[in-house]
Design a protein around this nucleic acid. Structure first.
Lengths: 145, 145
DNA sequence: TATAATTTAATTGTACTAAATCAAATCGGA
DNA sequence: TCCGATTTGATTTAGTACAATTAAATTATA
């Protein structure tokens, strides 16, 4: 009588992945709200803090997001004053997002967020390492297909 | 000069969780499309296949979703004919979703989905077990707070 | 038994998320 | 060079997500 075993919620691997992702992102909410950022905007800013400027295409590759998500998101960040958007001179199809002074300044205020979040991960260092490694194995496999 | 180390994308644990979740859910799309289900609708049906009928509150607890998500989702599943919605007689505040004959029949067609998905998880059995255990540790910790 | 507190869904508003399509610019081969 | 294929973003459409609020029903307490 095991016909439907595989259809049980408790036998899914994707479901806890999906649920845990949402739960953790939700945890960021109060800290990010103080910076006027959503979680997606926060990881986009993370890339900009490192790269200073980047095309939508490259940003999408790093975040696993497409232009349908990034275009309005970048417009919103531009409106907040954290970046500017302009076309590449070499190839007009390419849109470049560039961090602003205000966006750079935001980095200092954001620096406290990872510390605050660290406390609410109820995992041992080994579990966190293991989780990190497995997730990137999944992501790398996705990327190759 | 490690001031901003913790703000790097590659040092985040939440980011690969978030990205992997979306990538895997995306994988389901072609299989679920054939059943006229989204991923969220699919896991809701999974609960209904087991429970036959359940309140919005209880369903939300199982799926880590609130009524703002579930109300339109259940209405949509009702429109497709997979369930019916009615108020509880004991407590009129409680809305009960009950699986229909059509919804029950859908289970047979859905039974192939987990098999098809199994192939695209590029993890060893140990990694999958480990991931499952760690994710539920995270979720259980969230639930307790 | 009033009534205050609690429980439960629904609604509202904002913001992702992604498939599908469109349009413009560039590139590459004949 | 010319034209078809490709690349790249933008737009459109549909469906989540979730905080905040509202409304209705129930429960607990004075």
């Amino acid at each position: 009588m095991k016909k439907y075993e595989a259809l049980k919620l408790e036998n899914q691997l994707c479901f806890p992945l999906y649920a845990a992702s949402r739960e953790i992102v939700k945890r960021y909410y109060p800290y990010l709200k103080a910076l006027d950022l959503t979680y997606t905007q926060y990881i986009a800013m993370m890339v900009l803090w490192e790269e200073k400027s980047i095309s939508v295409k490259e940003l999408g590759k790093k975040l696993f997001l497409d232009s349908g998500t990034l275009t309005p998101l970048l417009k919103s960040l531009e409106k907040k004053g954290y970046l500017t958007r302009r076309r590449s001179e070499e190839d007009e199809r390419v849109l470049i997002a560039e961090i602003s002074a205000e966006g750079t300044a935001l980095r200092d205020r954001a620096a406290a967020v990872p510390d605050k979040m660290a406390g609410c991960m109820s995992l041992s260092a080994e579990e966190a390492d293991s989780l990190y490694r497995i997730l990137y194995k999944l992501l790398d496999a996705e990327k190759r297909e």
